[in-house]
Amino acid sequence: MISKEDLEHLAQISRINLTENELEKFPKQLDKTIEYIDILEELASDDSVNLDLQELTFEELRMDEISMSDDKQLNKNITEDGFLRGPKMK
């Protein structure tokens, strides 16, 4: 069961404020979802199954070369010095 405290903790580590309405209805909805995925527990834990779908060889990896785009990647809240303004830290 997901308690209100559990929900608040999940919301905190996910950095999401929930509305009154969500705080009200989420515990039940999330419970149902978790109950639904709980059937995964029936699966045996067998470490012999290879979980990897894709592999890359070393040779296929990107060469260490510089290539800079001229595009301005950030266009919001930039100071005259080029810094990005963020929320206060303390």
Binding site: R62, D64, E65, I66, S67, M68, S69, D71, Q73, L74, I78, D81, G82, F83, L84
Partner: peptide
């Protein structure tokens, strides 16, 4: 270059946010 992109590995002494993609 950087670990996951082709921006400069040497970021020192550059104008802020000019070595980004």
């Amino acid at each position: 270059s950087k670990l996951f992109c082709s921006c400069r590995g040497n970021y020192r002494d550059l104008r802020p946010n000019s070595n980004i993609c």
